[in-house]
């Protein structure tokens, strides 16, 4: 059976909030190392990869591999009943028809309990190759969201150029052009505001802003986001969580005609 307790329901609430507009039905794959999810959006342009490691739960127990087939809209309805600060326990039998969720308030003795029906989901799993990216940019997640939303007001696409001069996000639209350039920057007092650019070779790629803005719904999970680029491969946008857990988004580039 599976029993996994999070100290704060907000972690799962934020993860599901961040991906529910991209993915509707997906398996939560549970094994002794934790709970993982991999799913493509309907148009097969983006891929979501989540790993909540066993260490992120206390306690964590999973005797056999279990796939929890979940409709994320339904899961959202149940998670809405949890306060951010509640402790959240997920429970399931080895061949479950439903997922049991228990929310416990730390402040009082309130315990709420829900059973969510599961579904059989036949999901295609993709092998994601280990990639040495040409450019890795770590920046405040709020900054990345701001850049994406600002540029989306002008255009459907953004071109990301990483060079020794910095990283430039630029777009061209009917009403005009826009560009934001960031350079490496260290804030000793507030490291969450740092911008770090690691570059082994210059990169230039174009992506759909609609998807990037969607990924930015994960900004609540982490102060910083890491974006990794190499020419002619999908962009990786990673929000790191505690205990090596993470939420990653991959986005296929736009390519020349």
């Amino acid at each position: 059976m599976l029993e996994a307790k999070l100290d704060q329901a907000s972690i799962l609430k934020k993860v599901v909030d961040a991906i529910k507009d991209l993915v509707q039905d997906c398996n939560f794959d549970c094994n002794d190392s934790g709970i993982a999810l991999q799913a493509m959006d309907n148009s097969h342009v983006a891929l979501v990869s989540m790993a909540l490691k066993a260490e992120s739960f206390q306690p964590y127990r999973c005797d056999r591999n279990i796939a929890l087939g979940l409709n994320l809209t339904s899961l959202t309805k149940v998670l809405r009943a949890a306060q951010n600060e509640d402790m959240l326990t997920l429970r399931a039998e080895d061949a479950p028809d439903s997922l049991n969720l228990v929310f416990e308030s730390k402040a009082d003795d309130r315990i709420s309990e829900y059973d969510l029906k599961l579904m059989d989901i036949d999901q295609e799993h993709l092998g994601i190759p280990e990639t040495e990216y040409a450019a890795t940019i770590t920046l405040p997640s709020s900054e990345f969201r701001r850049i994406c939303t600002d540029l989306m007001a002008l255009s459907e696409s953004v071109t990301i150029d990483a060079s020794k001069d910095g990283v430039k996000f630029s777009c061209t639209g009917d009403i005009g052009n826009g560009a934001v350039t960031l350079r490496s920057h260290t804030n000793v007092d507030k490291p969450e505001l740092n911008v770090d650019i690691e570059l082994s070779e210059p990169v230039s790629l174009t992506f759909s802003l609609k998807y990037l803005v969607n990924f930015c719904k994960a900004s609540a999970l982490s102060h910083q986001v890491k974006i990794c680029l190499s020419n002619e491969v999908p962009l990786l946008v990673e929000y790191a969580l505690e205990n090596q857990s993470h939420l990653r988004f991959y986005l296929a580039p736009k390519i020349g005609d």
Partner: peptide, 14 residues
Amino acid sequence: EGTQSNITRYFEGA
């Protein structure tokens, strides 16, 4: 602005 490519072009089915 180019054509949107598909993620399955880069990642293989397991």
